[in-house]
């Protein structure tokens, strides 16, 4: 292998590593995004169980009471 060929191969390897590093950075950001769904799911669960089920009763007085309690209990 000539020196020029060797230099080419080394440069290609370095480029490849740079791309991998960038891919890891992007993947880490995407993993973190997915982890954040946990809090979103918990918030939706809380709203459904604490609010929507009582609201389904369509009793205005009870609706006001439930909404008021939900807000003060956050």
């Amino acid at each position: 292998m000539t020196t020029t060929e060797l230099a080419h191969r080394v440069r290609a390897k370095i480029r490849e590593r740079g791309t991998l590093r960038e891919r890891v950075r992007v993947l880490e950001a995407e993993v973190q995004e997915n982890r954040q769904l946990n809090r979103r799911i918990a918030e939706l669960t809380d709203v459904v169980t604490e609010l929507l089920i009582p609201l389904e009763a369509r009793d205005q007085e009870r609706v006001d009471e439930v909404l008021g309690r939900f807000r003060t209990g956050l």
């Binding site: 982890r35 769904l37 946990n38 809090r39 799911i41 918990a42 918030e43 669960t45 809380d46 604490e50 003060t72 209990g73 956050l74």
Partner: peptide
């Protein structure tokens, strides 16, 4: 063992402790 359930449990704890008169910060 699921983080979403752990957060939902923490919301229930917040609500219960507020109802007992505790002032708290999440």
């Amino acid at each position: 063992t699921s983080p979403a359930d752990i957060v939902a449990e923490s919301y229930r704890i917040t609500r219960a402790m507020r109802a007992q008169g505790w002032r708290l910060l999440r």
